[in-house]
Amino acid sequence: MTLVLHGRKVVPGVVEGEALVSHETISGWGGIDPERGVITERRHELAGQCFTGKILVFPGAKGSSGWSGFFQASRLAGTAPLGMIFTAMTTKVALGAVVTRVPAVLVPTEQHPLDVISTGDWVRIDAASGVVEIKKSD
């Protein structure tokens, strides 16, 4: 089964890969370890999970202004996610997506990307057109 969502371009590019879905916002500084590409916030639903090479699907950024710097550091360390899909625009997540240099799309909450997409689904982002295609894993 293939589903399609329509968002708007944040960072252009085309990419496809496996989804890693977080229903909670993500902290950059103090929330991830860029050298390992792992979410480290102890009480986070993805605590201990690695986002390297995954399409990160999440509501948006929270916490420190170090968000973009930490995701940029993941790019420099080779541990970055493959792409980003999120629902809430902030300066942190916008700059973060830009300096991580991965295709990124803002999908309106009304399309429920956090419920439609599950971890393990195969996702293709065409950021310029804002189209997100999802092949469900089940």
Partner: peptide
């Protein structure tokens, strides 16, 4: 101010 980052 917005919550800016290292690059901005």
């Amino acid at each position: 101010t917005n919550c800016e980052g290292t690059a901005s």
